[in-house]
Structures are given as C-alpha cells and as structure tokens.
Design a protein around this nucleic acid. Sequence first.
RNA 1: GGUAACGUGGCCGAGUGGCUAGGCAGAGCUCUGCAAAAGCUCGUACAGCGGUUCGAAUCCGCUCGUUACCUCCA
Length: 496
Amino acid sequence: MNHPLSLYNTLTRTKQPFTPLESPLVGLYVCGPTVYGHAHLGHARPYITFDVLRRYMQYLGYKVRYVRNITDVGHLQNDADDGEDKIEKYAKAHQLEPMEVVQQYTNSFHLDMASLNILPPDIEPRASGHIIEQIEMIQEILDNGLAYESNGSVYFDVPAYNKDHRYGKLSGRVIEDLLNNTRELDGQEEKRSPLDFALWKKASASHIMRWNSPWSEGFPGWHLECSAMSRKYLGKQFDIHGGGLDLMFPHHECEIAQSQASHNHTDAARFWMHNNLITINGKKMGKSLNNFITLGELFTGSHEVLQQAYSPMTVRFFILQAHYRSTLDFSNEGLQAARKGYLKVMNGLRILDQLQYPTGTAAVDAKADEEIQKLTSELFVPLNDDLNTAKSIAALFNLLKKINSMHTGGFKLEILSEETFEQMRQQYRTLALDVLGLKIEQTTDALTLLEVVLGFYKEAKETKDYAKVDAIRAQLKGQGIVIKDMKSGIDWAYEE
RNA sequence: GGUAACGUGGCCGAGUGGCUAGGCAGAGCUCUGCAAAAGCUCGUACAGCGGUUCGAAUCCGCUCGUUACCUCCA
C-alpha cells in the first residue's frame, strides 16, 4: 500500500511518511481515561482526533487495531499523600467500592463517547485486569538491572538507564537539567534518585486496592499499565502511540524507558502523536485547575459559563475545525459558529440525497466538469498532511457552495458528467460521515411536530374540510398514530 | 529557573517565501407574497522593531505579550 499520508512524529519533531510495520495492519494505542470523574471537553479532543485518524486509515484500506485503555488503578494523588490513590480517595468519601466508582465513570465515559460518534476501540483493556502482565514486566526490568527494590516498592533506575539510553528523548529533556530543577517533594527517601519513578508501590494499611506481588502487597506504578497493555495487544513494537500533550512528560517518557528496559525495543511505538490542549480563557482546561466543563454539562447547557447547550456533533465539529496540534480556545462564540457550520454541512448532505442526475443526454461542459472534479479531489488531500481536518472541512465548504447552487438551479446538473456527479456525491458523503464521523442529529421533536399537525386537523374540522381531515388521519395512521376526537378535545394515541 | 510552543481581519481558525483558506458575525445585491435558505460581492488581517531577499504573515535577530511541560492531568 502506498499512501502519501504523513504524520507529525513527536519523537523526531518532523512530519514523516507513514508506513506500517506490517502493511496493511496498523497498531494504534491511545492513552485512555483515568475513571474517577466525568469526561470533560478536554478529554473529547484526543478521542475525536484519534477516532478520525483511525477512520481515515480504514478509508485508506488499512486494517487498524485500535487499543485504548481504561486506567482504574494507581495514579497517586501526590507523592506526599502516603500512597492513597485517587480512585480510593474518592471512594471513601462516597462510601462506595472503588470498582463501583470505576464502573460508574466508565459507563459515563462510554455514553459520552457514543454521543460524540466516536467508534469504540477494538480492545479496551483495564489496568486492573492486567496486574500479572505488569508484574512480569517489572521482573524483566529488575532482571536487566534497571530497577531496584526498596522497602517493598520497586523503582525504575533512571540514571542507570540513562547510561546507555536517553531518558528524555521524547520530550527533549536532558537528565542533568531535570536533576538541577527537581522540586523538593516528600516521600522520596526510598528512591536513589529523585528522577526514579515507581514500578510497584507497597500499599499502606489503609489502601484498599491492592494485589500480591513478589515484593509486597501493593499496586502497580502509574506509567506501567500502558507499557504492559500495548505490548500485550499490539506487540513489543507497534505503529502509533497517541495521547494528550500533557502526557508527553513524564508519562510517555516513562513508557518508552519501561519498554526499552524490559524488552529492549528502542521505541515501542514508531510514531508518537500528541494532540494539543483545549484552553478556556487562554488557560489549559484541566482537572488540576478545576476550570473544566464536562461533556454532560456541555450537552445540557448546565454550567454557568455556557450560554446554551451544545450538541455532541457541534462539539465534534468545533474540535475538528482546528488542527489537532494547535491549542483550541473554548468560547460560546466559537461553539455557536461551529453549530451553524455543522448544520450547513448536514443540509448539504440532505440536498445531495435529493439531487437526481437528469436522464437523457446533454452536452457536458468540460470546464465546469473539471471545476467540480478539482473541488472533489481536494477533499481528502489535507488529511494526508498530518490529518489537517480544518483544511478538509474548508474544502468541504467550497464544494458545498456548488452543491447548493445545483440545488437552487444556478448550476445545471446536466453540464456535469454522471461520473463526476457521482464522485462528488460519494466523496462528500464519505468525508463528512465516514471519515470526519459527523452524523445527522435529531433536532426536531416528533411530539411537538404532532401538535402542529393536530392544529391543522382541528382547523380542518372547524371549516368542515373533511377531505383534509381524512387525509391527515390517514397520514398519521401510517405513522402508527390514531387521532381521537373527544368531547373534551382532540387527543391522539399510539395505534394498538 | 530549565525546556518547548504560540501571537493571523469583529470572533474562531488554516496557511510557512510570490498564487482566494474556510466558518461565524457585519454590509450590499440577486431570488422572494412575507420570511428563510441559497448564491454573488465587500472589508484589503498577519504583535512591534530591525535584517536577509527582486519579493516575507511565512526565514533570521531583538523586544513585548500569552501558554504548556518540569507534580496528577486528554
């Protein structure tokens, strides 16, 4: 397969032509959520971005295996917190089982993802279901002399690793600089170097989530699950690893070190991709700043900064109108503009479905035909340049102008060849629906529409226009609705 | 403090040496019973100051401003 798809690789800081290790197979791993809260707007970005990448690769003919994990263990609140993890902390406050919390937010996450029309991953492994694999990986790193045990916990030996490898190659960090700028944090006594990170943590007495291991009863370190699970399902080396920019250091850096130290592959993933962050008032939207808007709040408009509710497809379109490596600032104006743009694209879809290529022969206008061919051909090209969805959408609008003209009659369909017309129709639909993953949202409420129809029905009865009365009755019956004329007024019921 | 980015018209947001980005908002026109939709036209934008060049939003330098990572975070 020879596609001109180029992707920006954080590892090399350049755009590189993408070729899979074993075409047409593509292994794609994306860091999934830590399920201790509802997903917010910031979470939507990587999952939408990599959903489009996956969809586009499938469109190109690749067979993609997409793995996105659920992190439900580990992730310390902070180093001074005596080993109490976030999920546990929340669970105690609410008197719930930790796994109950995990399940609740996993369900919520899945609902949000489905609303955004994000295709489910092929494999969605949970960290808590892969403790054995993680323990095995720790043992390998210990055997290779790049980790050490300390008081029941196991730490990755960053300085030892850095002798033969470069810790910091992904994020552009230099170990000496890191050492010079280490913050003074508590709970570091067990570590030989402040840069060392935990592979296994011994659980404190109060820690509920705990597993047996050769070293202590405890829980795995907070970078290990991705290394273990990507390896299990995609192999020691695979094609693409994605995630948010804020995971680059230390999370992804540690993943690289763990993979190298355990199974000696220089780069577990050949391409590392990072989406930029969503900002609000110029500041990163994130849990730590407590300035986030959850997807649920966005969809219902129930947050004080929201002037209105924004539908899932509005959110999706908003995100796709910016390139994934640029920051994107949240604003009501931006979302409102996205909403209109999205609806415009959907109206185009409706028009395309209605357009009929005229039967009978007419002279094809070569110039017009060529113009439409050109606009059509520009639809997918930007995606090859590091997934430039913003530019593809612009191309979609350029073609849409012509489609609208065809609809209103300014542009005569018969001056196009049938082939050009079908190409245009098919490509527009494929880009909008299959690759960008937009879908038509139900914007009308059937019951409200029914009230409108019943209004006309009442009017027809009053003017004794029985032909119309009968027609309305018949039409509604066809929809499974029966009208009931009662003394008290007009009512309706589902036909039994 | 270290490292890495960014600063584009009223708003959002592509573009990286010469060729219309696009969307939203605004103005005008066409169409129209009214309206809407749609189409066409318009504003002549690239933080500031220097430099390189026939030519810079795009390359280089400086200044100003903003942000991210360095600690859990998509």
